[in-house]
Amino acid sequence: MLDLLGYAAFFGTTALTYAIMCLGLNVQWGQTGLFNVGIAGFAAIGAYTSAILTTPPTQAHLGGFALPIVAGLIGAAAAAGLASLLVGALTLRLRSDYLAITTFGVAVVVQLTCLNVQGVTGGPFGIGFIPRPFGGFADRPGAFAALQFLGMVVLTVALFLALERLAQSPWGRVLRAIREDETAAAALGKNATAYRLQAFALGGAVIGLGGALQAHAIGFIAPDNYLPALTFQIWTMLIIGGSGNNAGAIIGAVLIWGLWSGSGAALTAIFPPELQARAASLQVVAIGIILCAILVLRPRGLFGERTAVSRHVDGLETNPSTALAEQDSAPRAL
């Protein structure tokens, strides 16, 4: 019984680390309409930064600097935020798809770096002995897991409240205006690119924080944790939860992580070992199909966005029919 509760607490902790990455993505995509295909890369930056800052000194990788976990988390958010700032500064003034392609490339390069720069990242062996919060309770597994879970709950709720407040603030309203209608935002005299950049950096920092929290929850990281599959998972969580909706982002993360680990466990139980790899692939196929189906059938997700939303700006730019909107005097695109 205690085992089961402990497992449930561990499941909850992991699910909430995904929820935090999801909240970060929601700032970028849901609130600003920026398309990040390199979530795994930004999560890896956060995870490795925090791991290097907080692990005890070792020969296996850079550091460790044995700093408190809080310092590691702050460093993680700062590093991932800075990386996002750089990527955004380069691509946000270009076509929207270039951001997608560039972030995809960032994830590839970050993963390669984790794998190849052994002196800093530990190479293929990754980084172990990452301190876990409430380490003083490590000899009482039940309490340890429960405390970790409670800590994550408190953190997630705090982040949720902060992001909700931000979304309702003038800053959040400008972001929404920019996403809804680029010309209106420009007419307001707001520098749309600067706002987008801020949102992209903030979202990236939150994703990095999520990556770091996951590293501290599990205690061990390796380059294989940060393959494109992670990006795909986070996207699916947000899309199913409903982009633009912070509560939906959290629910989507818990739901999809439950579905993912639940079906994974079921496959292990049902299929003989020699078929399990294939069955696991079919699991990814199913999630991919679900993602596509949601995008086609219910693009606002299961829980949707509370405020009414029209089309995204990027859609307008490329939609041949709306590019012809009536303006009798101004020059227009046809």
Partner: peptide, 20 residues
């Protein structure tokens, strides 16, 4: 003819088939 926003342009585009 017509003032700005009267729908002249949309009307002719509808006749051309590119506005529903």
């Amino acid at each position: 003819l017509g003032p700005n926003g009267a729908g002249k342009s949309t009307f002719i585009k509808a006749l051309a088939g590119i506005v529903p």
